[in-house]
Design a protein around this nucleic acid. Structure first.
Lengths: 216, 216, 216, 216
DNA sequence: GATGAATGAGCTTTCATTCAT
DNA sequence: CATGAATGAAAGCTCATTCAT
C-alpha cells in the first residue's frame, strides 16, 4: 500500500507540474501573445525547468493548442444556462452574459484571446510569403464557438415562441451579435485598457441594450 | 532655384518611400502579427533596403506605433458623418456603421487589429517579468477612440432630443457598445475565419439590432 | 546458502542487463554515430531505464570506450587462425580475411567504425579550441590492432621462410596494408552504400590481389 | 570607376569571408565530425559571427554538403594523371597515388572523411527510430567516386593492353581495391593516430604492393 | 541619402546526467 | 537496486539593428 501511495505521490506531483505549466502558459500567452510568451518565460512562471515543458507537450505550438482548447471548453462550460425552463428567456440570456463575464474575471485571461483569436500571433512557421490565408483553428475551439452560437440561438427561439421576443428576429445573425458582445465585454476585464472600460454600469447598459433589441 | 527643385524632388522621393514602407508595414503587421512581420519582410514588401527603415523610424516598435496611429486616424476620418443635419439620427448612425465596414473592406487590414489591439503581439523586449501592465497605447490612437465614442454619443443625444431614440439611454455606455460593434464587424472582412461570417445579411442584422435597441 | 544463491541470481540478472546495454550501445553507435546515439535510445533499445546505464558506466563516453574495446577484441579473436601449421601461409592469410568479413557480416556493425575510428564523432565536450589532438584510443583497442598487425606479420614471415612468399617483402608495411584492406572490406557490409559494393566477386578479387602481391 | 572598385571591394571581402567559413568548416568537420563541429566553433574558427554563416548557407547541413562536394572535387582534380601517354601504366598509377597522398597532406583533412563517409555523423534529424538505412550521398560526391574508379580502371586496361599488367585482372574490382587503398593511405596524414603510421616507408611499400599485384 | 553585409542576443529544442522515490 | 521525472547547459537558427561603403 505504501508503494501505491508513493507512486501516486510522484504522479500527483507530476500532474501538478503539468497544471502549473498550463496555468503559466495561459497567463503568458494571454499577456504576451504567442511569440511574446517565450518558452523560458512560461517555464519560469511555472517554476519548472525549460526542458520539462517538452515532456508534456510536443512543442510550443502543441502547448498553445492545448491551452486554447482547454480555455474555450471551460468558458463555454461556465456560460451554459442551468435551469432554462422556469425563467423568461431574457433572464436566461442575461444569466449567460453575466456568467461569461464572471468567468473571465475570475479566471486567467485567455478569453481575451477568443475575441482576437485572429490577432493572436500565428505560429511563426506557417506564413513565409505574404499572401497566405491564415489557417489556425484548433477544430475543438471552433466547434465550441458554433455550439455557443447555437445555444444562444435556441434561447432566442424559445423566447420568440413564448412571445417574449420579437417574432421578426434573424435568429442566427442576432445570436452572432450577442455572442460577439459577450466575448467583447467578457474580455475587457483583462484588457486593462482605460479606453475599454469594464464597469458595472457598462455591463448593465449592455444587458439592457441587448434586451431592448430583442424583446417585444 | 534648380537646387531647390532638386531638393524638393529628393524630398518627394523620400516621402514616397516612407509611405511605401508604411503601406508595407500595414500589410505585414496585419497579416503576420507583430513578430511575424519581420523588418526584412516589410522592407522587401516596400521595395527598399533593410536599413532605410531606420532612417524614418526609431525602431520596429516605433514603426508599429505610427502604423497604428495612422490607421486609426484614417478609419475615424472615414466614419465621420457628412451632413448630420438633415437626416434622422438613426440614419446617421447607420451611415457611420456602413462606412466603417466599407473602409475596412477596401483598405489594408489593420482595422482588424483595432479590435484586438491588446492581443496584438507586444514588442518582445518590454515585459520581462510577468506582472507588468502593458504599456501600448499610442496616445494619438486613444484620443481617436475617445473621439469616436464621443461622436456616437453626440448622435445619440441628438436622436434623443429629437424624440427619435429612447430617452432613458445611458448615452455613454450605449455609445461604447455601438463603437465596439462597429469595430467588431468592420474587422470581420479581414478575419477570413468562417466562424466569424461577414455577409450582407449579418450586417443588415446588426444595423437592425442597434436600431431596435435605441429607437423608441 | 539461500542468500548466496539469491545474490548470485541478482548478480546474474545484473550482468545480463549490462550485456543488453552493451549490445544496444553497439547497435546504436553503429547505426547512428556517437552523438546520434542518445543515451535514451540506447536504454530503450536495451529495455532498461535511462539511469541504470550510469550504474555500469561512468558516462556516455565510458560506455562508448567499452563498446569499442569489446568489439575490437571480438573481431580480432574471430580472425585468429586456428591450425596454422598444416596449411600454406597464403591459405592462412585468406582464412583470416574471410573470417574477418564473416564476423562483420554476422555481427552488429561496429567493425564499420573500426575503419573510420577517427571519423567517429568524438565526445562533444573535449575539444573546445580547434588545435587539439584527438585523445581517443582506448589503449586496449590499440593493443589489439598492433596484435593483429603482428599476427599478419608472423604469417608473412613464415610464408617467406617457407619460400612461398617473396623474400623482399617489407614485412611490417605489407602487414599494415593487409590489415587495412581487411578492415576496409570487412566493414563494407555495413556501409550499405552502393558506391562501396560488397559482392562475393569483389571479395574474391581482393583475396587474389593480396595473393598476387605477396606470393612468389 | 571608383564606384565599381568600391563595390568590388565589398564583394571581394564578402567572398573572402565565405571562403574562410568553408575553410573553417572543412577543418572543424574533419577534426570534430558532423555534430562535434558546432556552428559556433566553425564561425569562431572563421573569425565571423554565428549568423553570417546563414547568409551563405541554408543551414548546417547545406554547409556540410558544400564542403564535401568541394573537397571531393579538389581531390579528384589533384589526382588526375597529367601526361598519360608517354609513360608506363604502372608509373601513371603510382603518380596518382602519390599525388593523392600529397594533396591530403597539404590540404585540410577532409579526405579522411571520404574513407569514412559512412562513419561521419549523419545529420541528426533523419534517423529517429533505429532500423533505418542511411541516406546520405551528396550525388555530386558519389559521381566523383565513380569517376575516380573508372579512371583507375582505364589505366589498368591500358596497362593490360600494353602487356604490362596481368591479363586476367578483374579490372573493376582491382580498381576498387586501388581506390580504397588510395583513400586509406591518403587520409592517414590526418589521423594522427600512431597505430596508423604515415611514413615514407609505408607509402613506398604500398606502391610496391600494388605494383606486385598487377604487373606481369 | 541608401544599401545590405555583418553582428549577436535571444529563441526553441535536445539530451547527458542526477536523484528522490 | 532500478526508475524516469527533472534539470539546465548548449545546440541550431532568426532577426532587429548597425555601419562601412
Amino acid at each position: 500500500m505504501a508503494g501505491i501511495i508513493e507512486k501516486s505521490r510522484r504522479q500527483q506531483e507530476s500532474e501538478a507540474r503539468r497544471d502549473r505549466i498550463l496555468s503559466a502558459a495561459r497567463a503568458c500567452f494571454g499577456q504576451l501573445g504567442y511569440s511574446g510568451a517565450t518558452v523560458g518565460a512560461i517555464a519560469r512562471e511555472a517554476g519548472v525547468s525549460n526542458g520539462l515543458l517538452y515532456r508534456f507537450f510536443r512543442d510550443k505550438d502543441h502547448l498553445f493548442e492545448v491551452v486554447m482548447t482547454e480555455i474555450i471548453r471551460d468558458w463555454v462550460r461556465a456560460m451554459v444556462p442551468r435551469d432554462t425552463a422556469s425563467e423568461p428567456a431574457s433572464k436566461t440570456l442575461e444569466g449567460m452574459f453575466r456568467r461569461s463575464v464572471e468567468f473571465c474575471r475570475s479566471h486567467p485571461l485567455l478569453p481575451a484571446m477568443l475575441r482576437g483569436e485572429r490577432a493572436l500571433e500565428l505560429p511563426r512557421h506557417l506564413p513565409r510569403h505574404l499572401p497566405r490565408h491564415l489557417p489556425r483553428g484548433s477544430s475543438a475551439g471552433l466547434d465550441r464557438i458554433h455550439a455557443h452560437r447555437e445555444l444562444v440561438a435556441s434561447i432566442l427561439r424559445s423566447g420568440i415562441d413564448a412571445g417574449e421576443f420579437r417574432a421578426d428576429l434573424d435568429v442566427l445573425s442576432v445570436a452572432d451579435v450577442i455572442c460577439q458582445l459577450q466575448s467583447d465585454y467578457s474580455s475587457r476585464a483583462y484588457r486593462r485598457d482605460p479606453s475599454y472600460p469594464d464597469t458595472p454600469e457598462i455591463l448593465e447598459a449592455v444587458v439592457r441594450f441587448v434586451r431592448d433589441a430583442v424583446v417585444n
